[in-house]
């Protein structure tokens, strides 16, 4: 018998590629949350309504990941002293490994 697939209507979820491999846990449904707003990465920050490209993530050199809007708000406060809120190391953005749309939405947000 030969099985020929004519059409497959499938369903998938998109996830941010936070660098955490699936191998770390078969199920990451508990999911990772933004350390600032406690909302999952795939949700959106309190200022946004649409998740995904409109509310992107930002990766620190320290490997901490936040909603970009959350981090920018944090960095904007004097209390932050430009440090990562999780480990108090001076915030440095990791090399933008991804496309430019992260930055462009950053600009449109400002």
């Amino acid at each position: 018998m030969k099985v020929e697939i004519k059409n497959w209507h499938a369903v998938a979820q998109w996830r941010w590629d936070t660098g955490v491999s699936e191998a770390n846990g078969m199920d990451d449904d508990e999911g990772d949350v933004c350390g600032i707003c406690r909302v999952p990465y795939e949700g959106c920050c309190p200022a946004c309504k649409i998740p995904g490209d409109d509310c992107p993530l930002i990766w620190g050199e320290c490997t901490h990941v936040f909603h970009m809007h959350c981090l920018l708000k944090w960095i904007g406060t004097t209390a932050s002293k430009q440090q990562c809120p999780m480990d108090r190391r001076t915030w440095g953005q990791s090399v933008p490994i991804f496309s430019s749309n992260t930055l462009s939405s950053f600009c449109s947000y400002c």
Partner: peptide, 10 residues
């Protein structure tokens, strides 16, 4: 031939 609907998790 696969055409997925990609949904936002939450």
């Amino acid at each position: 031939i696969i055409h997925p609907t990609i949904i936002s998790k939450h």
